[in-house]
Design a protein around this nucleic acid. Sequence first.
DNA 1: TGACGAAAGGTGTATATGCACGTAAAAGGC
DNA 2: GCCTTTTACGTGCATATACACCTTTCGTCA
Lengths: 144, 144
Amino acid sequence: MTIGYTHTDFSALCACQTLRRSARAMTRRYNAALTSVDLKIGQFTTLAALLQPDPVPITVLAEQLGMDRTTLTRDLKPLERRGLVVSDSGSKDARQRRVTISDAGRALMSRAVPLWEDAQAETKKSMTDDQWADFRQGLQTLVD
Amino acid sequence: MTIGYTHTDFSALCACQTLRRSARAMTRRYNAALTSVDLKIGQFTTLAALLQPDPVPITVLAEQLGMDRTTLTRDLKPLERRGLVVSDSGSKDARQRRVTISDAGRALMSRAVPLWEDAQAETKKSMTDDQWADFRQGLQTLVD
DNA sequence: TGACGAAAGGTGTATATGCACGTAAAAGGC
DNA sequence: GCCTTTTACGTGCATATACACCTTTCGTCA
């Protein structure tokens, strides 16, 4: 029953815990920046991904956002309820549901983007663009 | 209503989205590795943090794990239900609730740690220890 | 010793996450 | 044209996340 690690080891060693912990902290920061537009960073990101001319099928959008399709289905609910996105049944394929950002959604995003820029600037002021690029590359390497 | 970013910009630029996306991917990988012991990586991390001799108050444990106290309260529920952790009322302070890992919890952890080691090795094989240290430092810098 | 602010913790509410499973429609093979 | 397989999507279930708010208890000070 000897485990070979102390309780402090995992917090320092586990790549997943390190990443999740940082993601939580970052999420809190960005969420705080977006309170006045009543958006969470996940919702902001979803709306941002919809800033494209054509309606996007659920599966494609989920792939672009790197999340499970069924998670996205539920994440869209509050946005639909607020009229920030709309969805239609696919024209050609009756199985498809395609999502579009609404005018209200675009209007809210135009208010939200400056708030996001503040949080983003605050976050990135600690490193240079080169460091950020390296860091981003490291992230990509880790999850590949 | 011009926003000034295209839909592809945010996915590449937003530090928070980048981090959250990677955290999701990493979480899926570690969760997959732990299926045979029926633990999520968050539960594993919580149990790991309890591998210390003395009972830990909720607030202290939450601080150590870098999560909200009320989140931890609910995360402990499934672990308590399975008898992996136990909690007592504080001896001195009646407000405190102190958590301890049980023998069953330690036994399960002794089975889980090798699975975690596999996932950890798989994750870190893409970078050297120095690169990992740098990356970890970058993470810390970002969320400070 | 009683009032009062601070500290520890839980609950209500809402969103986020994803696996297992089910349904319906399209595509493909014969 | 029918049968099988694949594709697109939703739901049930369970856990994760955190803010706002409430209750209980502790410490302190007059």
